[in-house]
Structure formats: structure tokens, C-alpha cells
Design a protein around this nucleic acid. Structure first.
Ligand SMILES: [Mn+2]
Ligand SMILES: [Mn+2]
Ligand SMILES: [Zn+2]
Ligand SMILES: [Zn+2]
Lengths: 153, 153
DNA sequence: CGCCTAATCTGCACGAGTTGCGAACTCGCA
DNA sequence: TGCGAGTTCGCAACTCGTGCAGATTAGGCG
């Protein structure tokens, strides 16, 4: 996602207004590697702007997605939003739900172009597994067993 | 997913009953390359067994997923279920929502093992784009524009 | 073959996540 | 400074999936 100043210009260029609510979300989303849900952002935003509506958060996120400034990540449960629009992949911990950006090698070698009768636009790669912290918490056990859902990003 | 007879044995081996509802779903799911939603299966099943409950369809699907006989596919919207448990990837049409199994080359070359402080279990690859049929229906246009949601599998 | 009971099915209520809607508000231009 | 298109907000509505409890049944046993 571009920085708040650039987004301000981009919104104005479309004849859209740049409200305090939008500016706040621009700031919260810029230059992070997290993958928050709409509600997580709503909670964060509420800290700095009490009274902001969850509806507005959804609205702005949808706008940013439509502008391709934000990507959506579907891993089940509520939608995650990804401000990192550079080509990258995701490592998802099945125990705690954390999503981490990873940059796998060998992605170019995928035979995506050879899918016939299909016009590819984007390739998404998600590696599910267990993160180091969860592996430490449940040593020598099935890591999916105790599902502690805290700290996911 | 294994065939109905094998699933029958697997269920009995766990002390679970093999009801007509379950047998029907075993049949509907076996040896297909579709990726139906719970509701789509419910509609199909209702044709052959009027009165079957959507709740039962969900229940059975969840059981099969827990047994790893069925995989879930998250592409936004309702959960899709995948009876093809062999290693493969998906091509998703952004216009009609159809999910097609594809077998990309070069998957082994992905540097999945090198993700550090992470224990990988499974890698999911999804190519989004526009299928041939949708490309034909909207020639020389942005294919996402008119969203005709029929016929997705 | 009929009994018994744990397992299952069904219908409904409920919860989470997201969107539609309309009245009130406000950014930004004239 | 005033105007109006665009925006926000609150709430109702909607979709998808699950919890619950009473009715039903598969399938082991005598
Ligand atoms: Mn990311
Ligand atoms: Mn598949
Ligand atoms: Zn973890
Ligand atoms: Zn299509």
C-alpha cells in the first residue's frame, strides 16, 4: 500500500474525499507486515478516534481493495487484509493463526502459463504449518491439538 | 476421497454408524473433480433424498475433513470442499467462480523448506484469472466487469 | 428376530461476519 | 461562506455455519 500522502492524492484524483477516518486507516495500514481483520483495525482505530464506525472501516478497506492498494487473504474465518502488495507468499500457523510474509525461491519456475484455456492474473501460494513459537509451546506433541488463538497477525 | 465402500469400513472402524445420509454423500462426493459448497451438496442430495437436513450435510462434511478424506478450499464466500486429496493446485475464475484442478510443473522447486523457524505441513497454490468460457463471453473487455455467477464448480 | 442404547438426524435458535439502507453530516470547490 | 456530492454512522438484514435438544435409528447382543 502506498503511503498516506500518496493515497490522499489518489483518492482526490478520483474525486473522493479524504476524511479523518480514511487518513487514520491510511496511517494504520501503511508500512506494516501484519494481516489484520476489519475488526482488529476497528479496535486499533477506535483507540485513536473513539466513535469511528466499524461500517466505515469496512467501507474504506473495500475501497482500498478495489484500488488494489490492499489485498485480501482468505484462510478461513474472517477476511484478512494485506497492505503488502509486492509479490510474496504466506506462511500460516495452523495453531495460532499467525500469517507471516515469506519470499519463496523457485516461484518463477512454476508452470502457471501452461494452464490451458485459462488467462492467469495472479498466483497465490500459502504454506500452512506450525510456527516456531507454537512448536516450542507444545514440544513433541501434535501441534494442532491445543488451539491457542492469541497473538495472531 | 476414498470410495463409498472404503469409507463405510473406515467409519465402522471408528465405531461410527453408516447411515443412508452418509452413504448418499459418499456417493455424491466420490470420484468427482468439483469443489461444491455445503449448500450445493445439500441441493443435490435433496434430489435423491428429500428431507435430508442441511445440518447433516455440514456434519458429514466436517467429519470427512477431520478424517482428511476431504480438503477445504477458501476462496472467499462459502467454504468449498475438495474430494481430490492428491497433490494438486487450483485455477479459480474471478468472473464465474469456477475452481478447476490443475497440476502445475515446478512445484517441487519451491523453497518451502527454507522458511525458517517454521514447520511446513502443506503448500496451497491458487492461480486466479479468467477461464476460457468467461473470456469468450466478454471479448476484448475487462472480464471481471459483468459478474455472472452461474455454473461455478 | 426384537431390544436397547449410543450415535445420528433434524429443526431451530443463535452467533459471527459482512453488507444494504437512509438520515445526518462534512469535505472541498465555487 | 454556501452548496452538494460524497461520506459517515447506526441499525436492520443477510449469509454462512454451529450449538442444542428432542425424535429417530444403526447395529451389536441375547
Ligand atoms: Mn502478506
Ligand atoms: Mn481440487
Ligand atoms: Zn503459531
Ligand atoms: Zn469463468
Amino acid at each position: 500500500m502506498r503511503n498516506p500522502a500518496e493515497l490522499t492524492d489518489a483518492f482526490r484524483a478520483k474525486g473522493w474525499k479524504v476524511t479523518p477516518q480514511r487518513q487514520l486507516l491510511f496511517r494504520l495500514l501503511h508500512d506494516t507486515d501484519r494481516h489484520p481483520t476489519a475488526d482488529a483495525l476497528f479496535v486499533e482505530a477506535s483507540g485513536q478516534m473513539p466513535g469511528i464506525s466499524l461500517r466505515t472501516v469496512y467501507q474504506t478497506l473495500n475501497d482500498l481493495v478495489a484500488m488494489d492498494e490492499l489485498h485480501v487473504v482468505n484462510i478461513g474465518g474472517s477476511t484478512r487484509f494485506d497492505p503488502n502488495t509486492a509479490a510474496h507468499q504466506h506462511a500460516v500457523c495452523s495453531a495460532c493463526g499467525t500469517i507471516r510474509d515469506v519470499y519463496l525461491s523457485g516461484v518463477d519456475g512454476l508452470g502457471v502459463a501452461e494452464v490451458d484455456d485459462f488467462h492467469p492474473q495472479r498466483t497465490r501460494i500459502t504454506v500452512t504449518g506450525v510456527c516456531g513459537r507454537c512448536a516450542d509451546l507444545t514440544p513433541t506433541r501434535r501441534p494442532t491439538g491445543s488451539h491457542h488463538k492469541e497473538n495472531q497477525q
